Structure formats: C-alpha cells, structure tokens
Computed example of a mutant assay.
Amino acid sequence: MREIPRPSLAERTTLRLGGTAIAELILEDATDLEALPERLRALGGNPLILGAGSNILARDGDLPLVLVRPRFMQGPEIVGQRNGKILVRVGAGVPLPRLLRFCVSQGLGGLEGLVGIPGSVGGAVAMNAGSFGTETCDYIESIQIVNGQTVRSITVEALQYGYRTLSIPKVEKGFMIVEVTLGLTASARDGISKCMRHNFFEKKSKQPVTAWSAGCVFKNPAPNMPAGKLLELAGYKGKKLGGMAFSSLHANFLINEGRGSANAALALLHEAREAVRQRFGLALQPEVRIVPCPSR
C-alpha cells in the first residue's frame, strides 16, 4: 500500500475542485486490502473511495477524508462463456475507455453507449453510469467486492440497481468494488467501432466533453423530463458564478472555467435548484457526489 500525505482533491477530480484530504491510500493487491482497515483507523477521518474522480464535487479547505484509491488494473480479459454471452473480467481501476477499446478489438458488443464517459470501471459500476440507452449494470454477471476485511463475489441476482444507483441489500454500505465480470455479445468489430464513433461525435456536439466537468450534475426527474431542459427553461444555460458555469452546450453540465471554487459551484447549484423548484415545483437531486456529504 502506498500512502501520500495531504493529497489535493483538485488534482484528482475531473472538475478540478476541492481542498486537501488527510491522506491517500493506493491499493494494488490483496495484501493492501488486508491492511486497509487498520490504516484507516490510525489515520482517522472518513474514507472516500475514489476512482478517476469523474463524478465528484469536493468541498474547499481541509477535508476530514482519507482517499482510498483502488488500482486493481487486471484485464480486461475474456474468461469464458455463459448463456450465449462472452464473459469479460476487468479490474475496478481500469479506465473505462480502455475497456471499450478492448471491446472493439475483440468484437464484443453491448457497451457502445458508454463511449465518452470518463472514469474507471469501478466508478461506472458503482453509479450505474449510462448513456444512449446503455446502463453499465445491465451487463454485469458478477462483481468482486471488499467489505471490511472480507473479499466476496456477488452475482447479479443479489444486486439492486437503477438510475445512477447500485446497492447490495445483504451487504452493509461502504463496500469497495475490486473487479467486475461482464456478459457481452459477439459482434462485428467494424459495427461496434462505427457505433462508438457515432455516439462520441453525437455527444461531443451536445456536451462539453473536453471541459473541466463532472458530467451531469443533476438526475433527470423522469425519463421524459431531462434536468438539462428544466435548467435551460429556468434560465441557467450558460449561467456563471465565481469561475463556475452551466455549459452553454448542455445546461446540466457544470464546468470549471479555470478559476472556480467549490463554494462557487455549490452556490450556483443551490440557485439553479431553487429556480427550477419555483418554476416547475420539482426538486432536482444531485447526480454528482458532494464530499464531504452535507450535514443533516
């Protein structure tokens, strides 16, 4: 286990925001998992499992957090077949784009809609990332997790997942994903590649994919009621505050223009939520994870 003191969240999140945590623990093998609970107790603070930092809005200042960074980089590799599906095992720390390139090279279809989503495989599973009608968890066969000091395999039947959520009812919260086995379909490489290119350029034309952003910041209240449209109608498309802005391409993308702060981001989100509530009577729920969590 490698340990880094006082890591910067701004350097570890795609929104480029956030203060300083207590420490960062980088996990690379099973012995690191065994030693993790004791090291967390010694450091104090609250553990935050952090992949590529693509769905995080970290607060400013000194933060009572210990970053736990799973660097399980095995795979992707084909490990068998079941019920007409080709099974692919991949470590939670593997970047999602790397998995998608593997799918193209091996002629494995199913995940084409995830192109253009930043982050790690573990993060995509943990939040059931999705786009173009594709959701990550629809392709899970099983996941391997660590909970406390116990490593276990969980089949898809034991998972509960929905729009941007994943839970395991019989496992207490705080589990960490170690690896994932996916069930994919044999398909023509050219067709997969063509579909991914189409999806990427479609996304690029409508979303600020190269900006400092955490992706969509609010969940859609309903499939026919996208948060971006509500924000646009409430006057927040392109709205700016303190170096932060809602994108002029897509109103549900909060971007850091290079001089923003978490305080400004949170203030802008609060303003936008209130504007939508007043106009439409709807309370938008954050899709981005705010850390530390707001006190209740």
Rank of each mutant, 00 (worst) to 15 (best):
E287I: 10
A188P: 04
D32Q: 02
K203Y: 11
C137H: 01
A158D: 10
L241W: 03
S213G: 06
N147Q: 13
I154G: 00
S54V: 11
A42H: 02
A214L: 13
Q144L: 03
G122M: 01
L108S: 03
A227V: 14
G215H: 08
V178R: 06
L99I: 08
P223E: 07
I192L: 06
G116L: 06
M73D: 13
G91E: 04
R89F: 03
G123C: 08
S142Q: 13
R189A: 10
E11Q: 15
V88G: 00
P226T: 09
I168N: 12
A275K: 00
F218M: 01
V115M: 04
E77P: 08
K219L: 14
F200L: 15
Q160S: 14
P47R: 01
L33K: 06
S248D: 11
L266D: 07
P292I: 13
V209L: 15
V156R: 15
P118L: 04
Q160T: 13
W212P: 05
P76L: 05
I145P: 00
Q278N: 12
E179M: 01
G183W: 03
R197Y: 10
L108Q: 05
E28H: 12
V151K: 07
V180W: 01
A52R: 14
R82E: 09
C137L: 09
G75K: 02
F218E: 01
D190H: 10
